[in-house]
Every structure is written in structure tokens, then in C-alpha cells.
Computed example of a mutant assay.
Amino acid sequence: MSNVSQQSVTQFEQVSVVKAANVYFDGKVTSRTVLFADGTKKTLGIMLPGEYEFGTDVKELMEIIAGSLEVKLPGNEAWISINGTGEFIVPAHEKFQLRVHQVTDYCCSYL
């Protein structure tokens, strides 16, 4: 797990939101893109129970706001459990796997 913590942030100020949803896995994972004045972006989304594999273009910080899941990070054989809140970092150009057990609310920051 990462020591990077932004979980105390509950609201983003002065942002733009892309209206069109990002929809994956037949609608079981969705998110909205939030754009910041400094050029950075985040996505806020929901994952329904299921098993998923994602790939990254850039380094990502995944903050789990609420839910229950397991994540298998690149280069690791063990699954990491997150119940409630937590976070993990995925390097650029890697794949990671998720087993979502309960509806999970997340924020992804592109680093």
C-alpha cells in the first residue's frame, strides 16, 4: 500500500467535468473525468461486483472511497484486500487485476 494519502479531500473545487461517461465491462465499471485548472485529471467512478483487468498508460493512484475488493498489482502474486477505504499505486504501462466483492466507489488520479 502507498503512503500517499489524499483521502481527506472530500470535494474538488473549480473543476470541469466531462459529461460523457467512461463505460467498461458492459457498464459494470463507470467513471466521469474531472479536469483541473493545472492540467491534471482524475476520474470518479463506481465498480459493480466482478473480476476485471485494467491497463495503465500513466502512473495511477487508485483511492478506494468505499467498497470491498482485492487487487493484484503487477509483479505480485498475492492479492491485497481493501475493505472500506484504501489506496494503491499502479506504474505506467502495466496491468492490474481486481476482484470487486461489493459496489466500490473510487477516485483515480493520473500521476
Rank of each mutant, 00 (worst) to 15 (best):
residue 3 N to C: 03
residue 3 N to W: 02
residue 5 S to L: 04
residue 5 S to N: 15
residue 7 Q to Y: 03
residue 8 S to D: 15
residue 8 S to R: 10
residue 8 S to H: 13
residue 12 F to C: 08
residue 12 F to H: 13
residue 12 F to D: 11
residue 13 E to K: 15
residue 14 Q to Y: 07
residue 14 Q to V: 12
residue 15 V to R: 08
residue 16 S to H: 12
residue 16 S to T: 14
residue 18 V to T: 13
residue 19 K to T: 13
residue 20 A to M: 04
residue 21 A to R: 13
residue 22 N to E: 13
residue 22 N to Y: 05
residue 25 F to T: 01
residue 26 D to G: 07
residue 26 D to F: 01
residue 27 G to K: 04
residue 27 G to I: 02
residue 27 G to Q: 08
residue 29 V to S: 10
residue 30 T to E: 11
residue 31 S to W: 07
residue 31 S to N: 09
residue 32 R to H: 12
residue 32 R to T: 12
residue 32 R to P: 00
residue 33 T to A: 04
residue 33 T to E: 14
residue 34 V to P: 05
residue 34 V to E: 04
residue 35 L to Y: 02
residue 37 A to C: 00
residue 38 D to T: 08
residue 39 G to E: 07
residue 39 G to V: 04
residue 40 T to P: 02
residue 43 T to A: 14
residue 43 T to G: 03
residue 43 T to M: 11
residue 43 T to D: 12
residue 43 T to C: 08
residue 44 L to P: 00
residue 45 G to Q: 08
residue 46 I to K: 13
residue 47 M to I: 04
residue 48 L to R: 14
residue 48 L to G: 01
residue 51 E to K: 14
residue 51 E to Q: 14
residue 52 Y to N: 09
residue 52 Y to S: 09
residue 53 E to Q: 15
residue 53 E to P: 01
residue 54 F to P: 08
residue 54 F to S: 07
residue 55 G to H: 10
residue 55 G to F: 11
residue 58 V to F: 05
residue 59 K to T: 15
residue 59 K to G: 10
residue 61 L to T: 12
residue 62 M to C: 11
residue 63 E to R: 15
residue 64 I to A: 05
residue 65 I to V: 15
residue 66 A to M: 08
residue 67 G to K: 08
residue 68 S to N: 15
residue 68 S to V: 06
residue 69 L to T: 07
residue 69 L to G: 09
residue 70 E to C: 03
residue 71 V to C: 08
residue 72 K to Q: 15
residue 72 K to V: 12
residue 72 K to L: 11
residue 73 L to D: 10
residue 75 G to W: 07
residue 75 G to D: 07
residue 76 N to P: 00
residue 76 N to V: 08
residue 77 E to A: 15
residue 77 E to I: 11
residue 78 A to D: 15
residue 81 S to W: 01
residue 81 S to M: 06
residue 81 S to T: 15
residue 82 I to D: 05
residue 83 N to Q: 14
residue 83 N to D: 14
residue 85 T to Y: 02
residue 85 T to N: 03
residue 85 T to F: 01
residue 86 G to I: 04
residue 88 F to Y: 14
residue 89 I to G: 00
residue 89 I to S: 01
residue 90 V to S: 03
residue 92 A to R: 01
residue 93 H to D: 05
residue 93 H to T: 01
residue 94 E to P: 01
residue 94 E to F: 01
residue 96 F to S: 02
residue 97 Q to N: 07
residue 98 L to H: 02
residue 100 V to N: 06
residue 100 V to W: 04
residue 100 V to L: 03
residue 101 H to D: 00
residue 102 Q to P: 01
residue 102 Q to A: 11
residue 102 Q to K: 14
residue 102 Q to G: 00
residue 105 D to S: 10
residue 106 Y to Q: 05
residue 108 C to S: 12
residue 109 S to C: 06
residue 111 L to H: 02
residue 111 L to M: 12
residue 111 L to E: 13
